[in-house]
Design a binder for these strands. Structure first.
Lengths: 233, 233
DNA sequence: TAGATTGTTAATCGATTAACAATC
DNA sequence: TAGATTGTTAATCGATTAACAATC
């Protein structure tokens, strides 16, 4: 669903499995197909939770139950990058988690600026999900002077004027918009001017951004609509 | 990403375009492919916003810009169900909105119960996105006695004891979980016992549910992870 | 009309999955 | 060992898109 050209399944193409050392080489400059990346993200989510529940091992059938992905496909997705499992046993949760993180290039590398400290913003700031997946919310901004200086999660809320400097100082790549839809376009512009190149938009406003900046709009309602279509009747 | 068997593209298969009257017949018992439904949902989101911005017409190229879907594919997706556009002009926003709603079977039919009136719950209750897409949040529940009786959006917060009766009385099919991850499994069980058959889980907890109940987990962090993979480098 | 944009075809490419050998 | 589960093949099926005729 992006405008990126699809590449073939990188490490997967007609190849035999790679061992750990070969993974990064195999990935080279190539990109995963959208489907593979989406599914790997979901496996990672389940693994993170399984770990929390004290699980050491997990097999493709269990992963299938929680992700709604066919078990054969799970094994196929994984085997494209290496032999991560043990036949007759399954996958080691820790090891597979590390491997998928490596594949997705997301081992704690990305810093986030969150704009908006209302209900949604505070829900995001207070959540562990981002930290669980290697993101760090480095700064939170709000236009309301009454909110500036108070806490959101473990971060002190800053005024919009400090956006540019903070984005630079903290090496922030990603801006998350959690303001009312009406305010979203203006906030988008501010984030772009501050130097953010990826915007995660939690409103359903349409944002106009210059070339080189990518907007990803995440709408709970659209998710629901889509999901319902399959679940109902 | 569900365990549903894929059917061929229903109305799309080798057929000529259908006019409005034929759509429902064409859809019959068949299901859309996952990709089509996902994309239709996104078109609907953009149309809803375009309408708010006062737009009457929209063409496939504009839809493509906002959805990151190839314009040819948009036209192809739509033409499978009818001739909704005017050559040389584009699509009528209102008409296309109605048609997609009809295709997705979601013309204001679904009632929602929201559990959890913390930051995330209030963000959901106060948002217009659900209403925009034909969902109605009929009731909000919270375990905290101090919250019971206060307002969330336009609804009065009820205690968990009233869950079963309300779900029955209001014909609620969908339960949305917006509580801390730790509390999510217990809330899931309560929703199931109250008669909800579709659960939308906004935490990253893994929910065990009986056969016949479907869980859809929506994680902003997983979304972000997935999106980043394509946007970075 | 001239220009624009849809609707549709045809060819390609990738995703999906049943089945089973390999092996822990 | 016997049982279980992975890794992999091979075949099928659906998604994608360039190109262009149709037509508003």
């Amino acid at each position: 669903m992006t405008s990126n050209k699809r590449k073939s399944e990188s490490a997967g193409t007609g190849s035999r499995a790679k061992d750990g050392a070969e993974i990064s080489a195999a990935l080279g400059g190539e990109r995963l197909s959208l489907g593979v990346a989406a599914r790997l993200s979901r496996y990672l989510q389940v693994l993170t939770q399984a770990k929390k529940m004290g699980r050491d091992k997990i097999n493709s059938q269990e992963l299938a139950r929680y992700t709604h992905v066919n078990p054969t496909q799970i094994r196929r997705d994984l085997s494209g990058f290496g032999k991560f499992g043990k036949r007759g046993v399954g996958y080691d949760v820790d090891h597979l988690t590390e491997q998928i993180r490596a594949i997705l290039h997301t081992a704690g590398k990305y810093n986030i600026a969150l704009f908006g400290a209302g209900h949604l913003g505070k829900a995001i700031a207070g959540s562990e999900v981002f930290a669980d997946h290697g993101f760090e919310i480095k700064a939170v901004f709000d236009s309301d002077p009454k909110k500036v200086g108070t806490q959101a999660g473990s971060v002190t809320i800053q005024p919009p004027e400090e956006l540019r400097k903070t984005v630079l100082d903290e090496e922030i790549l990603v801006g998350v918009i959690a303001v009312p839809a009406k305010a979203a376009p203006a906030v988008g512009t501010m984030l772009v001017e501050a130097g953010v190149t990826i915007i995660f938009n939690y409103t359903d406003a349409l944002l106009e951004v210059p070339q080189g900046v990518t907007v990803h709009t995440s709408s709970p309602a659209v998710d629901l609509l889509y999901a319902l279509y399959f679940y109902l009747q």
